[in-house]
Design a protein around this nucleic acid. Structure first.
Length: 935
RNA sequence: GCUCAGAUGGUGGAACUGGUAGACACGCAGGACUUAAAAUCCUGUGACCUUAAAAGUCGUGCGGGUUCGAUUCCCGCUCUGAGUACCA
């Protein structure tokens, strides 16, 4: 029979499902290998052809690893909490759980058709109570922990309490809030329970605190920094404003240094690591206190100094002014009556500007003098104190020292306001024109560091500042603690209730705290989150539960552990399972998660490791980002009359210049190689049923543009349609054939025929002209073995560097070669089936069983061993080039040594022709590669 | 502005360590089969020049360099895409 892909694919998909072929079990006789895909959010639109790209690659990898004798864990699940289902619920009243369920079923149907080797018995859904029970449990562990800087790890909160009991707050070195109390053990002993809880909350790794949040009114929720892009929400593009709110936060900043260092130990794409480094934003410098000059002022201040952070403490003698952020808490107190008007005016002006304007308006220098002065601690000089919006309240101390000669921004500021510019290094050039940030040369005009180099000066100053108690070397991180609460319904309830305004955890045995039913999915009339609508939403019938739910990234920050032991009801995963599967060996997903999911997951992983629940410091050893598949839209051109009205005439792309036209999107599924199928077009656009078509060469050629893949642009290609027409094996191979996995590219179905033809040709290798299965048990010919072993090697080399497209080409070459050789040899063909099976598993299973093997055993067959002996050649066709230009090829024995090759080449008649009687200056012979003659 | 990735035929792309640029596939052209079409199969297909054939010249974004030899290494530039943005 001819290649009947529909029957074959259905048959084997059913076989795999019924026999649970890909169910992973612990097996200590084999090395483990964990291949993970970033699990999808099940959206209502279903899968388009871009989604499975990464899944196909990881599936090929997983299947290959099984053939190589690994015990492979390859699961799939759904990140099923999220905003779209909730937005849909608000519009329709449909419970998000129902929408989600429907969408998941659609996804599953689509995924099943592609022939993935997922172990579905381990499926997880983050919105299942059985799953989010453990998300809540991890939240509780975070609440019950603090970060001890002495041991450099998270510890149970009881070790902190012990320290407070024993020696008060003095010995505690922790990552905590700024405004913690200093107290003696006796103070701790006399504190009320509420006072103690209030203090402990400042240390917990998840904590409640009033913080400035990104409030998105349109979505009715706060957003994390990585969910805000240029002042608008990433999802939906709604405006986001800064607002102060009581919020749950995660003390991820405690892990800043470990998150940074860990990047050096993992095999991830450099751009992703770089983004995480930028996000963490480590800067090494010093904090310095500038005393406020209160000599002629009589005022009460909450502090008598201004603290600044600088990465160039060596330039401190060049300070000509200090700047505070307009929001800095001391601004009001430090503004003199004379400057009050100017300062208030400036603050008002700053407030009006949106975040976006402030960023767009980098060039305009602005600021206001407060009228106050501070004293430079190293020189004793009196310098002006300004406010300006280029200083951000949220970074460092919200105060900056201005060194115009060394910093361009400071230089512009000083020039604009007529402040002093002092040269501090003899290596600085042209500081009248612009700042020079060099570290070269020796210091001048710099008191006790005059004559020193950069390194000497920095060390000297750090030591001096510390000794004087006015500063010290300091490391600063840009990364802020992550807000961990959303004023939304469709998320994990936070397992907390409030008693006298203080948060307490529910008991562990009371988990999961199940999401309650509510009447509608909107905030309450009083502006509380949707959970405020739930009846009896209180603990012990008296204490109100937390009304926020967890953010989208909560469930995805640990899910790879749940797959290790998905059914466990007494632990998030058993110690045993974690000890066996350990970590993810290969993780494939989109680059858009670089600073969100991938950073939070590393954070939770490190935390779980500190508490001894997991073993590895990093969860994902190897990461691959698959490229984005863009849409490729097709257009028809409608002729427009004088008044600009559309006519009923459509002109082919090549002729449109001769007419006035308007472009209309046309469904890409009725266009083949840019040629419009006119009959189908008339059905697609009934208003054009009677249209006239101006053709070129008898065809209607469509225009092309690359855009986002979306329904409204009629450029969505659904994998189901391709599978229906060509089969899953063709789809799998074609997606890989498109180009390098990591490269973004527009989807183009042109060319899928080539892959389909390849599979037919492959099928035909095993059949005679009448499509009767026919292989022979003869002795394989040398050429056949060579073709086979070439592909055996190629596939294993390619997979190590994630180059799937080149393997597909090589399969085509191998099948072309074996077809030309009329190969019918069982041994050769059987090995070829194994090699191809990770790419095209269905057709290979069918042929495998036709070859007489046990049905379904192909998945665990042994990958053939490459034998280099079959590659050995006696002869090689040497390209002979003259002055670097290839002129001819010469067949020579590979046993010849360089000198013999040279002699053979030079004596050749055709070569003589190029020599024109001259003796060559030089002859380069690379054995088995090339001969180059220099004349 | 900064960081990163990239630029190869009509198209997607290959060339892994500096060694025959354009593998493989699409498209296109011609042919076979067919009453015809589809499907299938065969042949050709970087550009230029010339041709009966052969030969020749140019050619991997642009300009230089290193080398016997550069798509590959180095320097400078242009363009495209992604990320990031007053971070002190």
């Amino acid at each position: 029979m001819d290649y009947q892909f529909r029957e074959i694919e259905q048959k084997w998909q059913k076989h795999w499902a019924q026999n649970q072929t890909f169910k992973a079990e612990k097996d200590t006789t084999k090395p483990k290998f964990y291949v993970l895909d970033m699990f999808p959010y099940p959206s209502g639109a279903g899968l388009h052809v871009g989604h499975p790209l990464g899944y196909i690659a990881s599936d090929i990898f997983a299947r290959y690893k099984r053939l190589k004798g690994f015990n492979v864990l390859h699961p799939m699940g759904y990140d099923s909490f999220g905003l779209p289902a909730e937005q849909y619920a608000i519009q329709t009243g449909q419970h998000p759980a129902l929408t989600t369920e429907t969408n998941i079923n659609t996804y599953r149907t689509q995924l099943d058709k592609i022939g993935f080797s997922f172990d579905w018995s381990r499926e997880v859904r983050t919105s299942d109570a059985g799953y989010y029970k453990w998300t809540q449990w991890i939240f509780m562990q975070l609440f019950n922990s603090w970060y001890n800087l002495e041991t450099d790890r998270a510890e149970d909160i009881t070790t902190l309490i012990e320290k407070f009991n024993a020696s008060g707050s003095a010995d505690v070195r922790a990552v905590c809030d700024e405004e913690v109390k200093s107290f003696m053990p006796s103070d701790w002993a006399t504190m009320t329970d509420e006072e103690r809880q209030e203090e402990l909350l400042k240390y917990r790794l998840t904590y409640l605190r009033e913080s400035t949040v990104n409030w998105c009114a349109a979505l009715g929720t706060v957003l994390a920094n990585d969910e805000v892009k240029d002042g608008y929400s990433e999802r939906g593009g709604h405006p986001v404003e800064q607002k102060k709110m009581m919020q749950w936060s995660m003390r991820i900043s405690a892990y800043a240094e470990r998150l940074l260092q860990g990047l050096n130990t993992i095999d991830w794409p450099e751009p992703v690591k770089e983004m995480q480094r930028n996000w963490i934003g480590k800067s090494v410098g010093a904090s310095v206190r500038f005393k406020i000059d209160n000599a002629d002022a009589d005022r009460v201040l909450s502090a008598d100094y201004i603290e600044v952070f600088t990465t160039r403490v060596d330039t401190i003698f060049g300070v000509s002014y200090l700047v505070l952020a307009p929001e800095h808490e001391l601004v009001t107190a430090l503004t003199t009556p004379a400057q009050l008007e100017a300062v208030n005016g400036y603050i008002a002006q700053t407030k009006k500007k949106s975040e976006l304007d402030r960023m767009a308006d980098i060039k305009t220098v602005s600021g206001a003098f407060t009228g106050s002065y501070v004293i430079n601690p190293v020189s004793g000089e009196r310098v002006q104190l300004w406010i300006a919006d280029y200083v951000l309240a949220g970074y460092g101390t919200g105060a900056v020292m201005g060194v115009p000669s060394g910093d361009q921004r400071d230089w512009l500021f000083a020039t604009h306001f007529g402040l002093q510019i002092v040269q501090i290094l003899d290596g600085q050039k042209d500081i009248e024109v612009q700042a020079d940030a060099t570290k070269e040369g020796l210091y001048i005009n710099s008191g006790f560091i005059n004559g020193m180099t950069y390194a000497e000066a920095t060390a000297t100053l750090n030591a001096w500042l510390e000794e004087q108690g006015v500063g010290k070397a300091k490391v600063n991180y840009r990364m802020r603690d992550a807000i961990f609460g959303r004023q939304r319904y469709w998320g994990e309830p936070i397992p907390v209730y409030f008693k006298d305004g203080l948060p307490y955890l529910v008991k562990e045995e009371e988990l999961p705290l199940v999401l309650p039913e509510i009447d509608k999915y909107l905030p309450t009339e009083t502006g509380e989150p949707p959970l405020g609508r739930a009846e009896d939403w209180s603990y012990d019938d008296q204490y109100e539960y937390e009304l926020s739910t967890m953010p989208g990234w909560a469930g995805s920050s640990w899910y790879w552990y749940r797959y290790m032991d998905a059914q466990n009801s007494s632990d998030f995963a058993s110690k045993d399972a974690i000890a066996y599967w350990k970590d993810v060996d290969l993780y494939i997903g989109g680059a858009e998660h670089a600073t969100g999911h991938l950073l939070y997951s590393r954070f939770w992983n490190k935390f779980l490791k500190d508490l001894g629940y997991v073993q590895e410091e990093e969860p994902f050893k190897k990461l691959i980002n698959q490229g984005m598949i863009q849409g490729r839209s097709n257009f028809v051109y409608r002729v427009v009359d004088e008044e600009g009205r559309g006519t009923n005439t459509l002109v082919s792309q090549g002729l449109k210049k001769e007419y006035k036209t308007s472009a209309l999107h046309v469904d890409v599924n009725i266009v083949e190689n840019e040629v419009l199928n006119i009959e189908k077009f008339k059905l697609f656009r009934p208003e054009f049923a009677a249209a006239e078509f101006i053709l070129e060469n008898g065809k209607y050629i469509c225009g092309v543009e690359v855009e986002k893949m979306s329904k409204s642009k009629f450029n969505v290609v659904n994998p189901d349609v391709l599978i229906e027409n060509y089969g899953a094996d063709t789809l799998r191979m074609y997606e890989m054939f498109l180009g390098p996995l990591e490269q973004s590219k527009p989807w183009n179905t042109n060319g899928i025929e080539g892959v389909f033809k390849f599979l037919r040709k492959f099928w035909r290798l095993f059949h005679n002209d009448q499509w009767v299965f026919n292989v022979e048990d003869d002795i394989p010919a040398k050429a056949e073995l060579k073709a086979l072993h070439k592909i055996i090697k190629k596939v294993q080399d390619d997979i190590d560097r994630f180059s799937f497209n080149t393997s597909v080409s090589s399969f085509m070459i191998a099948v072309n070669e074996l077809t030309d050789l009329k190969c019918k040899n069982r041994q050769v063909l059987e090995d070829l089936v194994i090699v191809l099976s990770s790419y095209a598993p269905h057709i290979c299973e069918e042929l495998w069983s036709l070859l007489g093997n046990e049905a379904g055993s192909l998945s665990f067959a042994k990958y053939p061993v490459f034998n280099p002996e079959y590659m050995v050649e006696d002869e090689f066709s040497y390209p002979v080039s003259v002055n670097g230009k290839t002129r001819l090829n010469l067949n020579l024995s590979l046993s010849l040594e360089a000198a013999e090759i040279e002699a053979a080449v030079l004596s050749n008649e055709d070569v003589q022709k190029y020599l024109e009687g001259k003796a060559p200056k030089k002859v380069i012979v690379v054995k088995g590669r090339i001969v180059n003659i220099v004349i």
